[in-house]
Design a protein around this nucleic acid. Structure first.
Lengths: 347, 347
DNA sequence: TTGATTTATTGGAACGTTCCATTTATAGGG
DNA sequence: CCCTATAAATGGAACGTTCCAATAAATCAA
């Protein structure tokens, strides 16, 4: 049962009285082997406590069955959800994704990518860390390993990206606020080094433009994309002379921070100040007040990214189309009371 | 620059006009190489776009530098934090942890563990999925690969576990509720197939015993360890004839669910019903009302687990001591108003 | 100079697989 | 009975590293 030096196919071969080639064939489920022989070999495999050595196998085989998932912030439930969506697809394809966290640190990301390459991954799905340099993936591309960006993209890169329609989402949300009657609007959180920021801010501005909100009435406050960042944004915005009455936040974490800061001031999101988030994490629905947010179908995008990756591997290409996921606005309490109810209609 | 067939150390050797052995030595940072030669070789490495093949190397080397982290639920920020704590330690040790998610599914866990073993991991840190069979790790132990359990342990297993002092935490929390004047107490969420559940419930019961709370006044409601589960627990508990006035919840997710259900009934946690959570996730502090919870120093436990793992690898052993992490009760609003304030003392 | 010592470099044999080209066994056709 | 066809099993040469033992070159002591 217990074997000290780890068993190899040769040990199995000896145990079963066949050749190593036969064992290899059995391991690969080849149909060339007589069923009885296969049974005998499988028993020997059990007996010697064999562990398949994929490293050795990959030395000969074209490519491995592991795919790397490099995520910039695992503690953000948003990215964890993304990871889960991908896993579903990969599992069905018999591929095991290995996840690594870069903690939003480009240096760490470099190490992680290197390590995954050395491990011989068949492909990489990456949500790049903030501040990733354009050349960070050159070597990987040169090595012919397919890469897909998920949720985030890099400014000038040929690598296919799977991301939600940030521009449209922001437009939708902003329009919603304007239709609620707000005329002084804010955009909270994020910073321009993220393409996502530019897209979302772009959508915000386009909606402002479309509804002729004067530039003076648009407040843009950059900040950390966290609760803390959101709190700071609100403070900054309320300090100006004609403060905004509503805000679209870079993401839900910022929105939660804004709501927290409101409560600290004795104000309530929805009635005193309208707040809209972005991403629609699971928590948004359960918050109090429930957060209006732009739903991006995170798990769906993860699945899509995984599918694209599998296709790239299969067709041995390093190129693929971008994919822009549909978004929708989920209206809850934080963006203000439903006007429909206020007019006092029946039902 | 771009090389089609991937470059090996032989290509580097040719390019640099040295032997493959020399290249290997340079790669390992050996001091035996003349600096000028090393420089020449490193240039060649750059030029041919070389990617180190760790699989091939591991064929000869004793063991690899990858450690597997197998987590039962990545979407739970609690576990993500645990992962982050471990990563900090591993990074400093030049080890890259690969994370995989089992989604609380023992079958999936089996696959994931197998895959990691095949990949030749040097060790495994596991938070076992619910329903893991006792024998699930026998093969891994037999192969001599060190395993550490984090946060959760298995009923009858010799594998070292790093976990918080669940019993004491539950005692502390229950005592807190009793001192607040509550006499009818509930324990919400979880189920007995988890050792953690037994420990926490045990602490709850011990405190009840110590303060002579009659058995009839203890309500134990099992349930999913999620918000939804928490909501259900509260409904069940409030339906009985003499309902409890306070609850210790299996974890924070359950506690959030309980608070949500309270609000749905127009009740407020803290004033109408006392709620205490367990784990003290980051969100607890920011909830409204802020959640009283048992802090377990998640990241610290992660670091500890990583250290234990490194030590096991270094000393080539598969055995280590358990480690019980200290816990503390963080009192916030959800467990009721501060009595100290109520008596109206100064300052 | 010579031999001993140190410093740099190198070939070659593993490591555990896969896969091609063979070999061996089994059966069928005439 | 031989020849061919099919089925089943096998040996050996890769694959890209590491590491030992050996060599070559440089340095030193005498």
């Amino acid at each position: 049962m217990a074997s000290r030096a780890k068993a190899t196919i040769l040990d199995i071969a000896r145990e079963a009285g066949v050749s190593k080639s036969t064992v290899s064939l059995v391991l690969q489920g080849s149909g060339l082997i007589r069923p009885e022989t296969a049974v005998k070999v499988r028993k020997a495999i059990e007996d010697v406590g064999y562990v398949y050595n994929r490293g050795a196998a990959n030395l000969r085989k074209a490519h491995s069955n592991v795919i790397g998932m490099v995520i910039n912030d695992l503690t953000n439930p948003f990215f964890a959800e993304l990871a889960v969506g991908m896993e579903r697809v990969f599992q069905a394809a018999g591929v095991v994704p290995f996840i690594a966290n870069t903690a939003e640190n480009p240096v760490r990301q470099e190490e992680v990518l290197k390590s995954m390459m050395e491990q011989g991954v068949a492909g990489l799905i990456v949500s790049p860390a903030r501040g990733t340099t354009p050349g960070a993936f050159r070597r990987i591309e040169a090595a012919g390993v397919p890469v897909v960006f998920a949720m985030r993209r890099l400014p000038e890169s040929r690598i296919p990206a799977i991301a939600p329609d940030n521009h449209r989402g922001a437009c939708l949300a902003t329009e919603h606020l304007i239709r609620k009657g707000h005329r002084r609007l804010a955009f909270f959180g994020g910073s321009p080094d993220l393409v996502v920021y530019q897209e979302r801010l772009g959508g915000f501005l386009e909606a402002c433009e479309a509804f002729a909100i004067p530039v003076a009435d648009r407040t843009i406050v950059e900040g950390e994309t966290s609760r803390k960042g959101g709190m700071a944004c609100l403070e900054t915005a309320l300090a100006i002379s004609e403060p905004p009455t509503a805000a679209l936040c870079f993401n839900d974490a910022v929105a939660f921070g804004v709501m927290l800061a409101l409560r600290k001031r004795g104000l309530e999101a929805g009635t005193d100040f309208a707040v809209v988030g972005f991403d629609d994490v699971a928590e948004a629905e359960h918050y109090s007040p429930a957060l209006t947010s732009v739903a991006v179908d995170t798990a769906g995008l993860g699945e899509r990214a995984a599918h694209v990756m599998l296709k790239m591997i299969q067709s041995r290409t390093t190129r693929a189309e971008d994919h822009i996921g549909a978004v929708s606005l989920v209206v809850r309490e934080s963006s203000g009371p439903d006007r429909g109810k206020q007019v006092g209609d029946a039902a």
